[in-house]
Amino acid sequence: MRTDVDTATFEVGDEIPPLSTPPVSRLTLALYAGASGDHNPIHVDLDFARYHGMDDVFAHGMLASAYLGRMLTNWLPQDTLISFGMRFVAISHVHDKLSCQGRITERFKEAGEQRAWLELSVINQHGETKVVGDALVRLSTPMLQHP
């Protein structure tokens, strides 16, 4: 475990240090399409998006998820992560400024280790919720990378 975060003191209700990101631009979407391998034209090709009834291209849900992942791994090392889930409740649009937040909702002992459930969300600059998620993390005994 990293030494600068004392997981022993974590309590239900504690907030995860939030993460702000710059507004989603068309360049953001082009780079994410290339880097993620998700080349679905609905995210980068305006003609295609309009043909399918959308007013504009829009962000990949997994871009907002990647931001949530960044918030988590800024806070705890990645091998503490047991489960990570997300539900895309609204489309994230170009120019949306996405912010990630989360807090501890439950703390318990399981499989001989301290664990916690986290509640996560991604909102835009107008306070509209785009993604809701959760994560299960271990607060002690990180798994070995190559068991």
Binding site: P41, Q78, I82, S83, F84, M86, R87, F88, I91, P147
Partner: peptide, 16 residues
């Protein structure tokens, strides 16, 4: 493909 939206995603991890 043009009608598809991602609804939910879940990851369960055993190793990194």
């Amino acid at each position: 493909l043009g009608k598809v939206l991602h609804g939910e995603q879940r990851f369960n991890y055993y190793q990194v």
